[in-house]
């Protein structure tokens, strides 16, 4: 995946960190700019639109979450990747609900960061053609016209709700989806807190689509936050069913 045209804005109050990340990302082919805080980030976004903003959650002044919300309202198509040191679920959920596409917890390896950046970037690119009726991920195929799912050519029997959930996950491949977003997207706007439904369906889906449900390859858990649908064919997407 070429990164040359991808403009990244690093927003962090720690100058040494900005410097290290800037050099590393630039060496990896990204076009990098910097901002020291939320206020500066908004100004930079207005003057020189970028593709992805890397936002630290804990910043003096406006703070990461508020900056995320403002950047999102300013440019709806920008990719936002949050950086956090706290590893607290509430921070992550808050960030995702404020419009972030994904987050990484400091410290992280550079290649993980680049994989996340590219995944976000890929989801932002306009589709080359009209959406295909048949979506593929690894050996799975989802035919949205016939509402049929096959694995290695063999049809898998799914209940209507299981199909809806899998279809939603399929359409948001690589994205981290919070529990409430999944519940609202599949069950309806009035849902949001019924984690038990969601987890039960994910369990059943894993039994049907995964080779080994205890080591899922498609539906990955992001503890206390949500799920991420991974396309095994995508070498850059990390396989971490973290605990």
């Amino acid at each position: 995946m070429p990164s040359e045209n991808c403009k990244v804005l690093i927003v962090d109050d720690d100058s040494a960190f900005r410097r290290a990340l800037r050099t590393s990302l630039a060496a990896s082919g990204f076009d990098v700019s910097e901002a020291r805080n939320g206020e500066e980030a908004l100004a930079v976004t207005r003057d020189k639109p970028c593709d992805i903003a890397l936002l630290d959650i804990n910043m003096p002044g406006m703070g990461g979450i508020e900056t995320c919300r403002k950047i999102r309202s300013l440019s709806p198509r920008i990719g936002i990747l949050m950086l956090t040191v706290r590893d607290a679920e509430e921070d992550k959920v808050q960030a995702l609900e404020a419009g972030a596409d994904d987050f990484v917890t400091k410290p992280y390896r550079l290649r993980e960061m680049i994989a996340r950046l590219r995944a976000v970037r890929r989801r932002l690119l306009p589709p080359d053609e009209v959406p295909a009726a048949v979506l593929r991920a690894g050996t799975l195929e989802l035919d949205s016209e016939r509402r049929v799912v096959t694995k290695s050519g063999a049809e898998i029997h799914l209940s209507p709700k299981e199909y809806d959930l899998l279809s939603y996950l399929f359409k948001h491949q690589g994205a981290l989806l919070t529990h409430s977003r999944l519940l609202q997207g599949v069950w309806g706007a009035e849902y949001g807190g019924e984690l038990e439904y969601l987890r039960s369906y994910v369990r059943m889906l894993r039994k049907k689509i995964e080779d080994d449900p205890s080591q899922p390859e498609y539906i990955l858990t992001e503890p206390w936050v949500g799920y991420r649908f991974r396309n095994p064919a995508d070498a850059e997407s990390p396989l971490s069913d973290g605990e």
Partner: peptide, 10 residues
Amino acid sequence: LATIVTAAGG
């Protein structure tokens, strides 16, 4: 630590 990891990766 994040700076060290990033710089080493860089």
